[in-house]
Design a protein around this nucleic acid. Structure first.
Length: 958
DNA sequence: AGGATGTCTAAAT
DNA sequence: TAGACATCCT
């Protein structure tokens, strides 16, 4: 919980950093922060007692990043509960229990979505989970330590002793424990907010000479901390005021004078004062474990006036051996039972730390000693090859976007064109920097061995040179009086690019240039899910932007062309379509544009409150096409959309970020899920095979008319031909569906109902049954779904017998399994609707990718689900692993509580349908359409679930 | 103005 | 669970 509002309070001293800047340092990490976040994705499984290691995988992503950047991570885990925090822990436990009960109740009622949310809230990090992570870390030679009590204090100790130079956490309490450098909110790319203890005085604004760290600590305690609630009406601001004025060293005296300082009618009791002192002592003298002496010790040495026997609220001593075993994670910190037998003296990690870490021995090594001089020297921005560039770029970007409108007013005669062109040109320049940086990001993420060096980096280099040479030439006469500042920025920019160019060239010379390497490396943990190289023929996919085999990457080429198109005539493109035409004139695929389009579509739709979800997709796209192409600046979202790699989008673009994640995420999902194979019947393909977006149909009046139809048919063959011939497209569906659908090798004709436009996944949903006829083991099209048995969970919560649950016949999840070798008949009715699948959350795309079939006819009959194997179906746990053709791995967010308006996960069972369907054709059901789209806006009740299945089934049978 | 309180959202995939 | 935000209270 920490100190309420402390981070915003310290905003003025926030420094945006990348942890890679601290290359060579030791970083101590509050592992529970990662574990909590990691557990969110698999909370349901954890709460139900299923085995999962998703949270380990999540944490290891951070660890790997650190290792890659020459940082030595030490993971610190929480230990026993402190007496001082008994109250907090109790309330947390109670909240978890309440949520557990709620979850059980929801499950009983078949409300899976709500149940899942409650399960997410009741998940707790167990010592066993911590152990799993520790084991994974140790295999990589990463040190772990379990604090005897709070990880915060242990982190403080590591920082104070100089064992760790950087602390990574989310908990603002850490500042009170005396950590010098703390990085908060660190993301997978290492970016976070650095707060340095040495700058805290700036926030308190205390006269020089009067500031002490003690005052800061007092201020935080006074405003309320985990060990002591605040006095009514006192927050950080007032607490700060007190210690700005106070001159007395004795805190007791200061506290007594609080009403005077604050001119408030406060009652400061002796009890409060004692509580305050105890809280302060807990921050100062909490017990920690010293890995070198292998003993417990206080965070700070006890001063003479402190009687350590009175400090049991700050941790009680254990016997030496027990404390040591606990710090190794061998003893469960709650039950105090042995759970492992890790011995650092004999353990040999599977993967030895890279040679560059040899100088940093394990903290458990007998020879480990703290270096007198910190190995951590923050990389100066001028030397940091990427980070400086990122910062430079950011500065320029902000300036340019802010200044454009002012410039317009400056020269009324021709300001319009100039400003717009200038702005566009600059934007393009930004894009390049952004792109290059993105590429460097890729570079960071990609194993060099992946690159076969086929794709020439010439295009990019040329671009780079152009960017350098044009850095000044793009500046028009309309520059404002801030010109000097601008020049400075440009110079910095140029300098950054020069540095980058040098870096680039040196890398090239060394033979490991990683230009154009696909963003998802084969050795990345997720790579197996998305090995795009494996299925693509005749088109070399080397970058996340899908380079063609013709040398210059389409991206580079497109950009070069677009630069020419934009900068040379110095004329504002009249519309998005104009600009896009120019882009498409290059004759090169521009997958990026497609995703930019998607991102833009999203942002528009998000803002357009009246837009009725997927129903208005086409209209929104039209809007995009008719509007200025400002959306192109959002191309950075491609990183999310295409790569499937989670890239954080800057918070300044929050809306876009959200929307881009929304659609981009589904795109990535689609790329990852579909076998990415060029059509087999296409001749050798040119780059056009991968042209994904038809951009020249803006203003096509027939488009909107067609969208009013219930079903739109994509004739892929014709579509592809028409595109090749450069003719106007007749597509009526969204670009994303259109473009992606062409990669389906098995289906030449895909019918997409209106309410699924824009949904990649929906295509999948429709065509799966068709494919499943061929073989139910088709790995590309058959989804694996796991049904979950909630009985054990319900029993544990409600304290009843499993058998009684079955016999009671109430509404709950249950898979009715029949003894059949290959087919599992599942009768889907209301009482069983949530039985079909608890679907692994990792495979769940975003919200729009499904057919919403609420408000359809009630109660359907039977859905056939082919079991993956009989053995899984008969597992004693009751879990059924089924291969369900067409059962989308999709999750659905629905508004569960109209009052809160919060999106909830939707029950998944509705998406199951028979694999016996003969055709993917889905004719309109007339009245169903309206309710379909409406239902996405309304609270979802569980009742229509079974009818949804019926509807899908009926549709498919037709 | 600052604090208390309540609502909403994102966090993961 | 924390943070942002709105609203109300002191």
């Amino acid at each position: 919980m920490g100190i309420q509002g402390l981070l915003p309070f310290l905003k003025t001293i926030h420094e945006e950093v990348n942890i890679a800047q601290f290359s060579g340092c030791t970083v101590a990490i509050d592992a529970y922060c990662w574990l909590h976040k990691g557990a969110f994705s698999c909370a349901e499984k954890l709460a139900l007692g299923e085995k999962t290691d998703q949270y380990v995988y999540y944490c290891m992503k951070y660890v790997d990043y650190m290792l890659k950047h020459n940082l030595k991570p030490i993971l610190v885990f929480d230990g026993c509960h402190l007496k001082s925090k008994a109250g907090v822990e109790k309330s947390r436990r109670e909240r978890r229990e309440i949520n557990r009960k709620k979850a059980a109740q929801f499950l009983r009622e078949g409300r899976r979505a709500e149940a899942k949310e409650c399960l997410q809230r009741c998940v707790d990090i167990s010592p066993q989970m911590a152990l799993e992570l520790m084991n994974a870390c140790r295999q990589k030679g990463v040190d772990c330590i379990v604090a005897p009590y709070e990880a915060d204090a242990q982190l403080g100790y590591l920082s104070r002793k100089g064992i760790a130079q950087i602390i990574v956490t989310e908990d603002s309490d850490l500042l009170l424990f005396g950590c010098e450098k703390i990085i908060f909110k660190m993301d997978f790319n290492g970016r976070g907010v650095l707060i340095q203890q040495s700058r805290l005085n700036e926030v308190m604004d205390i006269q020089t000479g009067f500031y002490t760290f003690e005052k800061f600590r007092y201020m935080c305690i006074l405003s309320g901390c985990d060990y002591l609630p605040s006095l009514h009406g006192i927050g950080l601001a007032k607490a700060c005021k007190v210690f700005k004025m106070a001159r007395q060293a004795d805190i007791r005296q200061v506290l007594k004078k609080l009403p005077m300082y604050l001119k408030m009618n406060l009652c400061v009791t002796n009890e409060y004062v004692e509580g305050f002192v105890r809280a302060d002592n807990t921050f100062l003298y909490q017990l920690v474990f010293d890995p070198m002496t292998r003993e417990l010790c206080p965070l700070n040495p006890y001063p003479p006036e402190i009687d350590e026997n009175e400090l049991d609220y700050a941790g009680q001593y254990f016997p030496k051996e027990k404390a040591y075993q606990m710090s190794l994670g061998n003893i469960d910190v709650h039950s105090h039972k042995a759970i492992a037998n890790f011995d650092p003296d004999t353990f040999v990690p599977k993967n030895k730390p890279p040679a560059r870490f040899r100088h940093l021995l394990s903290i458990w090594d007998r020879n480990y000693c703290i270096k007198s001089e910190s190995p951590c020297k923050e990389v100066q921005p001028s030397q940091a090859e990427r980070l400086s560039l990122r910062n430079e770029e950011r500065t320029v970007k902000v300036k340019l976007f802010q200044k454009s409108p002012a410039k317009r007013q400056r020269d009324p005669s021709n300001s319009r064109d100039k400003s717009v062109v200038g702005s566009d040109a600059k934007r393009m320049k930004h894009l390049e920097v952004d792109d290059i940086l993105g590429m460097l990001d890729q570079d960071e993420n990609v194993d060099t061995s992946l690159n076969d060096g086929h794709a020439s980096p010439l295009g990019e280099k040329k671009l780079l040179s152009e960017s350098l040479s044009n850095a000044d030439s793009d500046r028009g006469s309309w520059e404002s009086e801030d010109e000097n500042e601008d020049i400075l920025c440009q110079k910095k920019h140029k300098k950054g690019l020069s540095a980058m160019k040098q870096d680039w060239e040196s890398k090239e010379a060394l033979g490991f240039i990683k230009h154009n390497v696909f963003a998802v490396p084969a050795d990345a943990p997720k790579a197996p899910r998305f090995n795009i190289n494996a299925t693509v023929e005749r088109v070399e996919v080397k970058s996340r932007y899908f380079a063609s085999s013709q040398g210059v990457s389409p991206r580079a080429s497109t950009k070069l062309e677009s630069r020419k198109a934009l900068s040379s005539p110095r004329k504002k493109p009249s519309s998005a379509s104009n600009k896009k035409e120019k882009l498409s004139e290059c004759g090169q695929p521009n997958i990026r544009l497609m995703f930019a389009e998607q991102a833009k579509h999203c942002s528009l739709r998000k803002e357009d409150k009246g837009s009725d979800d997927s129903r208005d997709f086409g209209k929104d796209v039209s809007k995009c096409q008719n509007s200025d192409l400002s959306g192109i600046k959002h191309q950075s979202h491609n990183k999310i959309a295409v790569g499937g790699v989670s890239k954080k989008v800057s918070s300044s673009n929050k809306v876009l970020s959200n929307s881009s994640k929304r659609l981009g995420g589904s795109s990535a999902f689609a790329w990852a899920k579909f076998k990415f194979t060029p059509r087999q019947d296409t001749p050798q393909s040119k780059a056009t095979e991968f042209v994904p977006v038809n951009v020249d149909n803006a203003g096509d009046s027939s488009r909107l008319e067609k969208e009013e139809e219930d079903v739109c048919v994509i004739e892929q063959e014709e579509k592809t031909k028409s595109e090749r011939a450069g003719s106007r497209s007749t597509l009526t569906e969204s670009p994303s569906v259109a473009s992606l659908s062409r990669y389906f090798s098995k289906s030449d004709s895909v019918q997409i109902p209106k309410n699924q436009r824009g949904s990649i996944h929906s295509v999948q949903t429709i065509r799966s049954p068709q494919n499943s006829q061929d073989s139910c083991t088709d790995s590309e099209d058959v989804r694996e779904v796991q049904a979950v048995d909630y009985k054990d969970f319900l029993c544990s919560v409600e304290g009843c017998e499993r058998e009684s649950l079955v016999e009671s016949g109430d509404k709950r999840s249950e898979v009715s399994s029949q003894d059949s070798d290959s087919t599992l008949e599942i009768s889907v009715n209301e009482s069983q609707r949530s039985s079909i699948g608890s679907i692994d959350s990792f495979c769940l795309p975003n919200t729009q990718d499904f057919i919403d079939l609420t408000d359809t006819e009630p109660d359907c009959e039977v859905t056939k689900i082919t079991k993956k194997s009989t053995s899984t179906a008969s597992a004693p746990s009751g879990k059924q692993s089924c291969r369900v053709p067409g059962l989308s791995r999709s999750r659905r967010k629905a508004k569960v509580s109209p009052g809160r308006g919060q999106q909830k996960l939707h029950s998944l069972s509705r998406f199951a349908f028979t694999r016996n369907a003969s055709k993917p054709s889905i004719p309109s059901t007339g009245t169903g359409e309206d309710s379909d789209s409406d239902s996405q806006q309304t609270p979802i009740t569980h009742a229509p679930d079974s009818s949804a299945l019926a509807k899908v089934q009926r549709r498919l049978e037709l």
